[in-house]
């Protein structure tokens, strides 16, 4: 018996059709019925680092706050930005990610009441009728990584397609685009692929598909007519970041037509003070958390001068390939 062989299910959704579909896929797992996912997910006496090696699945219902307003500065410049997460936690293990310090548990919570999420999306879009509203998925999880299990894009893309003023970003490091390739492309759905340079990928992105495979997935979506975006966030410092970032861009744009990219954004590594502290406690042996950092307005990041140098360099490289109007810097200092 290991946690990976367990699936915790809230009694309330035990007979939900989506739960039953999930349990059929995970038929080899033992099912433990629980009242609320917080019973398993929230207790303090859990070791995230150990759990991350072998996480269990928790199937639950999200009772409120399914769709929330995005923090200031998040997004692609639109006036109305919201985010939602059909899952908590990610199957990948990126050392720079705030999810390491976010929850007590590394188990993956999967909310099955998609209809309630959809109702909130419809309601919010209706509040801003006539104006574009962006819905960002992939904040507390990877949007597509668990697609074969969750059927997330299969459900939510038609929901957004049916609302004229709704736009959605699916942020991912996965290559799970098969479901989308079976659908008619929609210009209001942007699949944003996150990339780090080769050194950062090898050292910090544990379990993430290779850069080449993700470029291939991106290209398949583009060829099928779907808009795709590029996210270089966070850029992590190491002595060869210039060469490596340049090489990454060359690798991407040798396959993908830069003019076809919907948008690109970039930002340097940063975490809130608490997330940084928690992640560093979990991984006291991790060089990323031992690098020279500063604390400013509750955010731990590289010293300003280094950060400016990194962003200016990466921006200049990116703009050699892409038009400026497609570029959206992550303006987190504002």
């Amino acid at each position: 018996m290991s946690a990976a062989n367990l699936v915790y299910v809230e009694t309330e959704v035990r007979r939900h059709p989506r739960t039953e579909r999930l349990l059929r896929r995970m038929h080899q797992r033992d099912v433990v019925e629980i009242e609320h996912y917080g019973e398993v997910f929230n207790p303090r006496s859990q070791n995230f680092r150990l759990q991350k090696k072998n996480p269990a699945i928790i199937i639950a219902r999200k009772n409120k706050g399914q769709v929330l307003e995005a923090p200031p500065g998040y997004g692609l410049g639109g006036d109305h930005n919201y985010y939602f997460s059909h899952m908590l936690n990610c199957m990948y293990d990126c050392r720079y990610c705030f999810l390491q310090g976010m929850y007590q548990s590394a188990h993956q919570v999967l909310f099955v009441n998609y209809e309630d999420f959809a109702a909130q999306i419809q309601q919010i879009a209706a509040q801003h009728a006539g104006e574009p509203v962006w819905f960002y998925s992939g904040y507390d999880c990877d949007s597509l990584a668990n697609e074969p299990m969750t059927g997330f894009s299969e459900y939510f893309i038609p929901v957004v397609a049916a609302i004229d003023n709704a736009w959605m970003e699916l942020r991912t490091k996965s290559t799970q685009v098969r479901a989308m390739l079976k659908m008619e492309p929609l210009q209001r759905i942007v699949t944003a692929f996150s990339f780090s340079d080769g050194v950062s990928h090898a050292r910090l992105e544990h379990g993430v598909p290779s850069i080449a495979k993700r470029i291939d997935a991106m290209q398949r979506l583009l060829q099928a007519g779907w808009p795709v975006g590029l996210r270089f966030d966070p850029v992590v410092y190491h002595p060869n970041y210039r060469t490596e970032f340049t090489a990454l861009l060359e690798q991407i744009f040798s396959v993908v037509d830069a003019d076809a990219i919907h948008s690109a954004s970039l930002g340097s590594f940063r975490l809130t003070r608490n997330h940084f502290r928690d992640a560093a406690r979990l991984y006291p042996d991790e060089p990323l958390f031992a690098q020279r950092m500063t604390l400013e307005n509750g955010i731990v990041s590289y010293p300003r001068e280094l950060e400016r140098e990194m962003i200016e360099f990466c921006e200049a490289q990116l703009l050699q390939h892409m038009p400026r109007h497609s570029y959206h810097p992550c303006a987190w200092h504002d």
Partner: peptide, 14 residues
Amino acid sequence: RFYPAPFGASKIAG
């Protein structure tokens, strides 16, 4: 209620 977090590849039933 308490939840031990089983670990490892053992075949012991839960």
